[in-house]
Design a protein around this nucleic acid. Structure first.
Length: 541
RNA sequence: GCCCUCGUAGCUCAGGGGAUAGAGCAUCGGCCUCCGGAGCCGUGUGCGCAGGUUCGAAUCCUGCCGAGGGCGCCA
């Protein structure tokens, strides 16, 4: 990274040093002011440092500006001291032309590529909905988020493997088997069973033994296939599908129990075994072995996470859970500390609940009654791009409400079309260029300094911010920041497109050349961003 | 009762120490002689309440109010 901001930060450091002062770069910021009247960049360094030095911010700012005026950075036009002590940098737009050329030359493979992850091996687990039925809108909501996060982390230099944990054992599988057998026998499914129509359909096909576990496993496998098809429609593919049963059958759970026991962290109560998790900050101790001798879900989950870290050697594990699984967080983290992995290497992101509305009515759904809306139906209605962007537009920390009627009725107004249309327009300009036989000279032969229209400047500023946005979104585990950048960027492109013709008899050919490179740079950026969200870039709508 | 997350415009949401708090939708009104009108331009008396920290708080801390989720030998 040697962007303008870094150059400004370095220059500020040098200015401080010239006065015999040192300042930690993490204490001050170089940022783009909300208003362009405040310059291209501004810094609070004088305000931050003055407090520590016991001098007035403005007088320190004046000294810093004195140094910077003697030793200006490239493209520096003038400086200004404003408000309580901000130093505002006014640069000539040459720096934007340089950044544009960089974006074009780097291309899709290298632009906005960050090494901040340092090759760290990350296991990202998400979705992991139980295979007791089709994926519905609720439990599949954050799947696009997880998939986009994986893409984002890879762009930031992490070595990411994605994983779906298949809960293919335990009480719910037995219950699924019971429901299946009941349907096959023509009986009603009991209150606690699964009553959705899909159970009837599966029952009609099941020819296996009258055994709840066998029937349950068979149905779970079928459900998993359905889930994979739904995810496939959304463009989501996992590197690994990890079976919970395989962990239990491998003896790994017993090993974990022994390990915890050897550290004196297991209490016994009759035939039950309890993990003393309160010693690691949990609010209560947790059962690992039930009275009948079965393992609890937590026991398997601890073994599973131990497998991720110790057996498979991942340096960091990120789990995306629904907020209704928040109760596991403290126990799992306690367990990671207990087995010596270190809970700080386990990041658990909680996706808040989605409530579905129909008009102003909140829809009440019940898994038991099976009246949930399949995710696949939504994808069929909206298409994968619009469906993905729907959940990718908001922070995972926020409980969102989605009005299905509105979303379907306004599907043409979905922001994804606004973004894809911007890309289609870029592609269209290039088609027109080819149709008219315009031969674009090499970028080194083109005068990019002709790009001075306010629309062009605004577009280039947004363009050059993508590398920072990608890095920030990666570090914050926040792919929605990419979605927000895309919306802003697309808006600026549409404005440019409207006000600045690229190819026209009224436009000088040299300006056409420069604008064609602007479009090329924009296309690189928007394609990178769309690929991070897993949304297709359309050549035409 | 305890724990987690969240209260920003009519609605859905950004902004998460920085200068005059933004976008989409909805409303009302403008814009097609040229690269695609799925577009552009205009239209907005809003940070739940009260304290605190700070040069500076929508942002951090505390309390209160409100919403969602959790507090199983379910998974």
């Amino acid at each position: 990274m040697n962007g303008v901001r870094d150059r400004i930060a370095e220059a500020l450091g040098a200015a401080m040093e010239s006065m015999g002062l040192e300042i930690d770069p993490s204490l001050f910021v170089v940022e783009r002011p909300a208003r362009i009247e405040h310059g291209e960049f501004s810094t609070n360094v004088a305000m931050v440092a003055a407090k520590r030095l016991g001098v007035s911010p403005r007088s320190l700012a004046e000294k810093i500006c004195g140094y910077l005026n003697e030793n200006p950075i490239r493209h520096q036009e003038r400086l200004e001291i404003a408000g309580p002590g901000f130093i505002n940098f006014f640069l000539n737009c040459g720096y934007l032309h340089e950044e544009l050329a960089q974006a074009v030359l780097k291309g899709e493979d290298s632009f906005a590529l960050s090494g901040v992850g340092g090759g760290e091996r990350v296991l990202l687990e998400f979705c992991s909905a139980n295979p007791t039925g089709p994926l519905h809108v609720g439990n599949g909501w954050w799947a696009s988020y997880g998939d986009a996060l994986a893409r984002l982390l890879r762009r930031c230099g992490y070595a990411v493997s994605t994983e779906y944990y298949v809960n293919d054992t335990g009480g719910q599988i037995r219950r699924l088997g019971e429901s299946l057998l009941a349907r096959r026998a023509g009986r009603e499914v009991e209150e606690e069973g699964y009553q959705g129509d899909y159970v009837k359909e599966l029952a009609a096909e099941y020819s296996g033994p009258e055994d709840v576990v066998a029937a349950g496993k068979w149905a779970a496998e079928r459900n998993l296939k359905t889930i994979k098809i739904s995810l496939d429609k959304l463009g989501i593919h996992f590197d690994v599908w990890f079976s919970q049963a395989s962990i239990e059958e491998s003896g790994a759970v017993e090993e974990i129990l022994d390990l915890l026991d050897s550290k004196g962290l297991i209490a016994e109560e009759d035939s039950k075994k309890i993990f003393l998790s309160t010693r690691f900050g949990d609010s209560r101790d947790r059962y690992l072995v039930k009275a009948e001798g079965d393992f609890t879900y937590l026991a398997g989950d601890i073994a599973y996470h131990y497998n991720k870290f110790v057996v498979r050697g991942f340096q960091r594990v990120i789990d995306i859970f629904g907020a209704d699984h928040h109760g596991q967080v403290a126990s799992l983290k306690a367990a990671m500390d207990a087995v010596g992995v270190g809970s700080e290497k386990l990041e658990i992101l909680l996706g808040q609940m989605v409530s579905l509305l129909s008009g102003s009515d909140r829809l009440k759904f019940s898994k038991r009654k099976g009246n949930l809306i399949p995710l696949e139906d939504l994808v069929d209605d909206l298409g994968p791009a619009a469906t993905r962007l729907l959940s990718l537009s908001t922070s995972i920390d926020r409980a969102t409400s989605v009005d299905l009627d509105k979303v379907k009725a306004e599907s043409m107004d979905n922001p994804v079309y606004y973004i894809q249309y911007a890309h289609a327009r870029m592609a269209s300009i290039e088609r027109v260029k080819d149709q008219r036989g315009i031969i674009l000279p090499a970028i080194s032969e083109v005068d990019l300094s002709l790009l001075v229209h306010p629309r062009e400047l605004a577009l280039m500023r947004e363009l050059m911010s993508l590398p920072e946005v990608v890095e920030e979104a990666g570090l914050d585990r926040a792919p929605y920041k990419i979605a927000n950048w895309l919306k802003d960027f697309s808006g600026l492109f549409h404005s440019f497109y409207h006000d600045c013709y690229v190819i026209s008899d009224a436009v000088e050919i040299e300006l056409t050349y420069a604008r064609l490179y602007l479009v090329a740079g924009c296309k690189v950026a928007i394609r990178v961003a769309l690929s991070l969200l897993g949304v297709e870039a359309l050549e035409q709508m």
